[in-house]
Amino acid sequence: MKYEIVIKGYIKDHLFEEFEMTQQEDFTTKLSGEFVDQAELYGVLRRIQDLGIELIAVIPV
């Protein structure tokens, strides 16, 4: 399953190396990637939370 995760602000590449990262015009970052299952998705969301980054959207594509 493929998801796009949108977070606030731009971030450096090394924070989420495994994803394709797009800096968007509205100063958000889109992380796109393939997930094995829901557990992996939640793992990434937890990492975003651990860094104190604001989560804006999670979209299945």
């Binding site: 977070i7 606030k8 731009y10 450096k12 924070l15 860094l51």
Partner: peptide
């Protein structure tokens, strides 16, 4: 000018 995540 930077729009990077503030902590980063």
């Amino acid at each position: 000018e930077s729009h990077y995540y503030i902590i980063d």
